[in-house]
């Protein structure tokens, strides 16, 4: 396999052919924000937060797009910043007021991104009151809050491709689309083995640990 040389934010970098823009940027220490991608998973490019400018009509997702020779990538233009910010606002529009993830492991990636891009107002409709997406507390160890789910697909891939338990899937259409377990049964009744990989990869408060910090006497 041959190497490819490109420019990211004005800096030259040479990487093996087939490398994604996101991975190439990492080698330069440029951290392109991303929600749906995790280096342990095959990229799917659904959250679009990592979109970059490569001089095309549209903004490709850096986590999926492979580098090409002499590509000129910008990750920090005004357009990119605005794009990221609007996407973040849209994702936050129907999020619960308090992130359960900030309350349990303290690493909500969506909230961290919101702080990074300095979101204050969210000028988009909040559908959660009219059409709440629901919770599932049937598992003794994993709390599911569909309201916080951004359908990034990380949990589905972690369950299938990392732990190979093949429990989580997607169901529904449009706004009612959500993740589901087995043939859409409550998580606690599904074939889930509670390995918690889905919680580990979830970027929001959609999949979190039930609190374990205290133990009752009995």
């Amino acid at each position: 396999m041959s190497d490819v040389t490109l420019t990211i934010d004005g800096r030259r970098v040479t990487v093996p052919e087939g490398t994604t823009i996101w991975d190439a940027a990492q080698t330069l220490g440029i951290d392109i924000p991303v929600l749906c991608h995790d280096p342990r998973l095959d990229p799917v490019g659904v959250c679009r937060v990592c979109a970059v400018d490569v001089g095309e009509r549209t903004l490709p997702a850096a986590c999926v797009r492979a580098v090409s020779p002499d590509m000129e990538v910008r990750t920090d233009t005004q357009e990119i910043m605005a794009h990221r910010r609007v996407l973040t606002e849209l994702l936050l529009a129907d999020q619960p007021a308090v992130s359960q993830r900030e309350q349990t492991t303290g690493d909500d990636k969506l909230y961290a991104l919101a702080r990074e891009v300095k979101v204050t107002d969210i000028p988009w409709p909040d559908q959660s009151e009219r059409q709440p997406r629901g919770q599932d507390a049937s598992s003794p160890v994993i709390a599911v809050d569909h309201q916080a789910c951004i359908m990034c697909d990380r949990c589905v891939r972690a369950c299938d491709d990392i732990q190979h338990n093949d429990v989580i899937t997607r169901t529904g259409k449009g706004y009612s689309a959500r993740i589901a377990f087995d043939l859409d049964v409550p998580m606690g009744e599904s074939s889930c083995v509670s390995c918690g990989e889905c919680v580990a990869v979830c970027p929001t408060g959609a999949l979190t640990h039930q609190s374990l910090a205290t133990t009752d006497a009995g």
Partner: peptide, 30 residues
């Protein structure tokens, strides 16, 4: 007080854990 267990990039687990490792740490505080 242990609040959570997170998989680390170990030679034998590459960041993965199972139910016992992820959720079974509270016995020490019983």
């Amino acid at each position: 007080v242990i609040h959570y267990a997170k998989g680390r990039d170990g030679a034998s687990n590459a960041g993965r854990l199972c139910v016992k490792g992820r959720y079974g740490f509270d016995y020490a505080a019983h």
